[in-house]
Amino acid sequence: MSAYRILLAEDEPAIADTLLYALQREGWQVRHCTLARDAEAALAAEPPQLLILDIGLPDDSGLALLGRLRRYSELPVMLLTARADEVDRVLGLELGADDYVVKPFSPREVVARVRAILKRSQPAAAAANPGGLFCHEAAARRIRFAGQALALTPSEYRVLATLLARPGQVFSRSQLLDALGEAAEDSFERTIDSHIKSLRAKLRQVRADLDPIVTHRGFGYALEQG
């Protein structure tokens, strides 16, 4: 995949413009947000291959956003920070950041670091499951599709993991609802339809030509790895 998608969460216009120019020159697709809440919405709507995240966003700490992200996704993250304090850098890495850059920085350095992160993450993920499109890393509660880590909610993760456990088997809505565990108490069977719709949208963002979740009308859903 050459046209990598990158989400940039940075509120300083001069820095954002410089990075947008440098990253887009590489042929990468870059979406820009200035607020943490907008970045989280963008992550849910269209998971990128990389998040470049400023620690000091106006509405929330970038570190807090990273902490929430790591509850359900191992999406590669590069931190941008104006703080040279070692505590901030260490905390960011402990929360799961893949790299960090301290402002002021060279756009060429950022591009080089981004290229390295993308090179590390994509081939390794593809190699983890050479015979299929999905790679389920259960210990990390992470699912990759066509080499890309999916940004899934806890409920979406449980539903997809259940389907992945038995490819080709048709699961009823009731069975998939049971897979949600505690989340099922306040749910109804049609909630599964909503999760399936969201999962399909996220899978299409990675491979628009595939629809591995198959609907069996009157019965339920199954996953076909192809």
Rank of each mutant, 00 (worst) to 15 (best):
R5Q: 11
L8Q: 03
E10P: 12
I15E: 10
T18Y: 12
L19R: 07
Y21D: 14
L23Y: 07
W28C: 08
R31P: 06
L35P: 01
A45K: 07
P47I: 00
I55Y: 04
P58R: 14
S61Q: 10
S61T: 11
R68S: 08
E74C: 13
E74T: 11
P76T: 01
P76S: 02
L80W: 10
T81G: 02
E86Y: 04
E86W: 05
V87K: 05
D88R: 00
L91F: 02
L95C: 09
D99P: 01
Y100I: 01
V101E: 00
V102A: 08
V102Y: 03
P104R: 00
F105G: 03
V110T: 00
V111P: 05
A112R: 02
I117G: 00
L118A: 02
K119L: 10
A124V: 05
N129M: 12
L133F: 09
C135F: 14
R141E: 12
R141Y: 06
I143Y: 05
G147P: 04
Q169Y: 15
Q169D: 15
F171I: 04
D186L: 08
F188P: 08
R190C: 09
R190I: 11
I196E: 03
R200E: 11
R204P: 08
R204M: 07
Q205W: 02
Q205D: 15
D209Y: 00
L210V: 08
L210T: 03
P212C: 04
V214Y: 12
G218S: 02
A222V: 06
L223R: 09
